Computed example of a mutant assay.
Amino acid sequence: MSEGTMQRRAQREEREQRVKRLSRVLVCAAAVPVMLVAAGCSSDSSSDGSTDKAAKAAASASASPSPTVEAAAYGKLPESCKVLSKKTLEDLVPESKSGKEGKSDDISTRGSCSWNSLDNNGVKGSQFRWLNVSMLRFESDVTRGPADKLAQEYYEKQVQDAQAAEGAKGVKSEPVSGTGDQATAVRYDLKKKEGTFKQQTIVARVENVVVTVDYNGAGLAGDKSPSADDLLKDAKKAAKEAVAAVSEANGAGGGAAGGAPSKTPSKDESKAPSESASKAAADEPSKDASQSPSKKPASKS
């Protein structure tokens, strides 16, 4: 074999080797994107499966039912100035011609009415009476709780406020039976320059409504003070009648007024916690709806 032939063969073999090396480089280069794609896909899910856990949690949350609360038993209130019979008004405030309805933004949730009576006997003195009935109805709320529980909280607050009345002397409290689901009477004296006022407050709850009756009397201009026991008896009568009116307005036939307890126990019977009303201030009757028992006697109407 000539030297030229051998040289050409060597060159050809060298070219073939370069082609093989180049092919291997191209194959490796093509494999790199595939690996990157695979790595990119696998990076979507962390090794601890946190993405799957988050997805499952979201699915579980969407499948969970919305929180619910038992609906309020009573959906309305009676007309505040018509909760007491004519006979009861004649007994408690004989000189009153009509009641004064308190202001309310929503008469289905709050209402009140007050009556003044001044029996003027000239030089023999006079007898003053003041009567006020207020009602507050609560609605169930998912965040605050069932309506009757909210009413119970307000009932307890009303009793405490009556017991802590400014200037009250000889405060006494007692339970009242046969009036709604729970009721308390608070009585005390208030000494004013006009005379000594005998104050009687009855706070009662029937289902999701709280009824507060304030009744006071005084002997003025030298007349003798009325009997506190008689005033309390009259106040209890008015409270029972007002509670019955609430039940009747809601088609309950006044059954709750007979003393049948609701499912919600009193504070002494149940210590179950509940959120105190975030709307407590809004739930208080307005000043127009609840007059101070120390109000001066009004002129004869």
Rank of each mutant, 00 (worst) to 15 (best):
D181Y: 12
D181W: 08
D181S: 11
Q182S: 07
Q182N: 09
A183G: 05
A183F: 11
A183Y: 11
T184D: 10
T184H: 02
A185S: 13
A185R: 08
A185N: 07
A185V: 11
V186F: 06
R187H: 07
R187P: 03
R187E: 07
R187C: 03
Y188W: 15
Y188E: 06
D189G: 04
D189E: 10
D189R: 14
D189H: 09
L190V: 10
L190D: 03
L190Y: 10
L190C: 10
K191V: 13
K191A: 15
K191P: 05
K191S: 14
K191Y: 03
K191Q: 14
K192P: 01
K192Y: 11
K192F: 10
K193P: 03
K193R: 06
E194L: 06
E194M: 09
E194I: 10
G195L: 13
G195Y: 15
G195F: 14
G195T: 07
G195E: 11
G195N: 06
G195W: 14
T196W: 12
T196V: 15
T196C: 05
T196D: 11
T196N: 11
F197L: 11
F197I: 05
F197Y: 15
F197C: 05
F197V: 05
K198P: 02
K198F: 03
K198R: 13
K198D: 06
K198C: 05
Q199T: 14
Q199S: 15
Q199A: 13
Q199Y: 15
Q200V: 14
Q200A: 14
Q200H: 12
Q200L: 09
Q200I: 12
Q200D: 12
Q200F: 08
Q200C: 15
Q200P: 08
T201P: 06
T201N: 12
T201Q: 14
I202C: 13
I202E: 13
I202P: 13
I202W: 13
I202L: 15
V203C: 09
V203N: 07
V203Y: 05
R205E: 15
R205H: 11
R205A: 15
V206K: 05
V206R: 09
E207V: 04
N208S: 07
N208R: 14
V209D: 06
V210I: 07
V210H: 04
V210Q: 05
V210K: 02
V210L: 07
V211D: 01
V211P: 04
V211T: 03
T212K: 02
T212V: 01
T212I: 01
T212M: 01
V213C: 02
V213E: 03
V213T: 04
V213A: 04
D214V: 03
D214Y: 02
D214P: 01
Y215M: 11
Y215A: 09
Y215G: 03
N216F: 04
N216Q: 02
N216K: 02
G217S: 01
G217R: 01
G217M: 00
A218H: 01
A218P: 01
A218C: 01
G219Q: 01
G219N: 00
G219I: 00
G219C: 00
L220Q: 00
L220P: 00
L220A: 00
L220T: 00
L220I: 00
